[in-house]
Amino acid sequence: MTAAFIWILLTIISEVLFLSFDIFGDAVTEQGVFIDEAFVLLVVLAIPIFTFVITTLGYVLVKFRAKGDELEDSAPVRTHDKWARSWLVWTTVLCLVVIVHPGYTGLLELRKTNAEEPDLTVNVTGRRWQWSYEYEGRGVQLFAMDEMLILPNDSLIRFIITSEDQDVIHSFWIPAFRMKIDAVPGLTTYFDVNTLEIGHFNDDVNFRVQCAELCGTDHSLMFTRIAVVERAEFEQWIAEKAA
């Protein structure tokens, strides 16, 4: 009973402490919001399991110690099938819960825009050690490493990603968007995001495209700064750039 009480108390304290921290700040895409919420939910579910194990370990260490150094046997409890079965049921239930949500719901979330026509399509090509971008149908291409990738807020953006044929595998990751997918030579990959907020690399370092798959010497420097701006501002920028 004492152990159960300690477990519940520890769990409540840990949950309250965890939930009172805002670890991520606001996510800036719909997909990112889902992913952050999934992360938080998984921590909330993991905490009681963690506190169960440490409570048991702590309780055992305090309560069930041999006296002195003599070899004294414990009562020979070999198994307790009822416990084992209920343990099995509980772990299975937890596992199924996680499979349904955020597992299955997450798959749906990531694919929900597949059939929609995006507001903007950006074709991305990786090569060692820089990214290049083409705003599809807008007559704008970005090559140089010091150029910023400007993206519109409040839009469905589709990134279509590959790597040059003689090049290696990269990974196209935008930490602020919580999304990444590999850029593979000979293969085209994609992901969609619905932007929700404006932001700029200078204010938040996660507004960057970062290569996330080891690609050799300058892998850590293979990044592009990003700014998400209001639509009108974006249209103005791209019109100037295309001219």
Binding site: T56, V60, F64, K67, A84, G103
Partner: peptide, 25 residues
């Protein structure tokens, strides 16, 4: 995610063995 189920049994065994034992630390 299913692998968590048999892995959980290993924990059951460890904690179940420790419970009400006479530990020599």
């Amino acid at each position: 995610e299913l692998i968590s189920i048999p892995t959980g049994i290993v924990f059951l065994s460890a904690l179940g063995t420790l419970w009400r034992s006479k530990l020599r630390l």
